[in-house]
Structure formats: C-alpha cells, structure tokens
C-alpha cells in the first residue's frame, strides 16, 4: 500500500499492490481519496514479479499483459473492502464499505466521512419515471412546438401533495434562457438547443448552480436534435469541488467553456469517440467521471428509457485505449 508522495488528504491516495509470499502478483488497485479509480488486472498466468518488470504509472509489474481497467463510477460501492482486496474479481458493482478508506485503513479502521454519490443507474431510472409523467410530457411538447430558433425552459416541481407540477415556459434567445428557480418544489428543468448542439459546458456549470441554490434541483433535461439528454448532480459536494477547481472559461457576453486543460482532454476524446452529439457528450461524461465531478450524464433511448453515459477505458498491452459503454444491469 504505497501512498502518492504528494498526498495530503485524509483519505488514502496511492496504489495497493498485492503479492503472494512467493512474489506472485495477485491484484492491484489505484486509489484516489478512498475510491478505486483503476484496477490492474493480469491477463495470463505468468505473474511472478521479476526483473523484467514493466512500469505502469510508476508501479512495477512483470511483463505479462497488464490491463488497466478504469472505474469511473466512483460510487461508495466501489470503495475497497477487505474481501475484495485479494480477489481477482471485478470490484466494480460489487459491495463495499459505505465510507472512504482512511490512511489508517487496516488498523483501527474507519476513514473520513464521504458524501454518498447517487448510483448512476438509479439516477437514470428516476429520470425515466419522471419522463413518463404527464406534466413532463406536456412540457416537452410545449418546448418542441415553440419557436425553434430560441431556447425555452420549463421548470418541473413537486406540489405539497406530491404531484408533479410545471412552471410557465420561459423564452430566451438563441443561446440562453432563464431557468425558473423559484417554482415550488423545483427539482428539474427542461430546455432546448435550437442549433442541434449537444449539452454544453454552460449547462454543466448552470446545473451545479441550480443544485447549490435548491438541494432538490438536481436535473437538467436538454432537448436537441430530436433527442433528450440529462445532466444530474449526483454528489453536490464533489460537483462544487469540480467547479471550484475547474471554473468556467468565459469571455464577456459569450457562452462559458471548460477551462483549457479540461477542454483539451475532451477535445482529444472527441477524435476517438466522434464529433457527433453522442460522441461529444460521451467525451464530456468521461472527463466528468475522471475528475470525480459528482455529475452523471444520461441519454434517453428510443424506448424512452434514460441510460447513464458511462464509459470504461481499457489500456491494451500495445498502449491503445479502448472505450466501452458500461451498461446498467
């Protein structure tokens, strides 16, 4: 269990490598602030750690084919528990402790408190339920039938009797519309993108602001090019950290963008994932997960079901990275 040299957080950050007494590789994890962010997986049986070690991210392995499986769910379910440490099984989706792992993990036990991140699949199910409600469908239709050259927004709320309500539609310009934040029980808002553009950096930053203002206001639905995407803040604490660490790059009177480093990474992924709306959104979702932004992006499929846009990055032995969708069970 080797911490990163520059770690100053209460929760463990570093690598955990497990060997048998004869030096054979058993399992390995990369951990960031108590959450597994990658697992080192052996691909064959030639697993003795020898002088022919290869180095991955500063970690030595033997020259078998090592695959780095990246975990972008970052949910508490993926925190390490004592049973999974010495298991060859995929830890992602398996049970775990509900708290992060502290520096003294394995000793007296216990780590610092971790705000739970809502499970992306549960989040998607909840959005699917909302999207079948009559009020949502009326709001969707109203926006789709409004002036297609402008943005329009309708806020959804919950009345005191638990029924869904909708605020009157706000009309905006080509690139911006005001969200009604004072509607009673506001929990979500829908808006359209007239130029068929994907969800934007501005939508991401605005979603966090909405949730800061109202703890139930977690979801933003974006209607574009006949499709519906959703931005859901699944961990406000992480989301606030993200926007603080990576504030929007915004010139006066212009739409916000991600700051240069995030922008560059997303753009690099677009080359691989595609420049269509889905590829671009997938690239954004991947980077949000990479930086533990506490935000889940969803896409509605043809059957009306919302699915989380979650991608697993795998680095092959030849260095090529492949990206596969992580489905909900």
């Amino acid at each position: 269990m080797s911490p990163d040299d520059n770690t100053i957080t209460a929760l463990f950050t570093g690598k955990i490598l497990m060997q048998n007494l004869n030096g054979s590789f058993v399992n390995g994890y990369k951990v960031k602030e108590g959450v597994i962010i990658a697992q080192y997986v052996k691909k064959n049986q030639n697993n003795a750690i020898t002088s022919k070690d290869i180095i991955i991210d500063g970690v030595s392995f033997t020259d078998y084919d090592v695959v780095i499986v990246t975990n972008y769910y970052h949910s508490p379910l993926t925190s390490i528990n004592s049973m999974s440490l010495f298991s060859d099984t995929d830890p992602f989706g398996s049970g775990g402790l509900d708290t992060g792992m502290g520096w003294y993990y394995g000793g007296a036990g216990g780590g610092g408190p971790v705000t739970p991140t809502k499970d992306p699949c549960t989040t998607a199910q909840e959005s699917t339920i909302v999207s079948k409600n009559k009020e949502y469908l009326i709001a969707l239709k109203a926006i789709n039938e409004a002036n297609a050259t402008e943005e329009h927004s309708i806020t959804l709320g919950t009345a005191s009797d638990g029924t869904m309500t909708q605020a009157p539609m706000n009309h905006g310009g080509q690139y911006i519309v005001q969200t009604n934040t004072t509607w009673e029980g506001a929990f979500a808002a829908l808006h359209n993108h007239p130029d068929k553009t994907p969800l934007s950096a501005g939508d991401i930053y605005a979603s966090v602001k909405l949730n800061v203002k109202s703890s139930n206001f977690t979801t933003t639905y974006i209607l574009t090019d006949g499709e519906v995407y959703a931005i859901v803040v699944t961990n406000l604490s992480l989301a606030q950290d993200f926007v603080k660490t990576y504030p929007a790059d915004q010139l006066p009177n212009q739409s916000p963008e991600f700051p240069n480093n995030i922008f560059y990474e997303i753009d690099g992924l677009k080359s691989i994932m595609g420049y269509g709306n889905e590829g671009r959104t997938t690239a954004i979702a991947f980077i949000l997960d990479k930086y533990s932004a506490g935000i889940t992006l969803l896409k509605q499929d043809n059957s009306g079901k919302f699915n989380p846009i979650k991608t697993q990055e795998t680095t092959q032995s030849n260095g090529i990275k492949t990206y596969n969708t992580i489905p909900c069970n």
């Binding site: 690139y175 911006i176 553009t197 934007s200 212009q254 739409s255 753009d267 677009k270 080359s271 420049y275």
Partner: peptide
C-alpha cells in the same frame, strides 16, 4: 493530421492537431 469541427452553444470552432 487531424481536424474536427464543433458547433457548440454560442461557439463554433475547428480543432487542428
């Protein structure tokens, strides 16, 4: 060697690599 174009909300740009 690599070029793409993005129409975003309020921005349009080419990426050249």
């Amino acid at each position: 060697k690599n070029a793409g174009a993005s129409n975003e909300v309020g921005h349009q740009y080419f990426s050249f690599k």
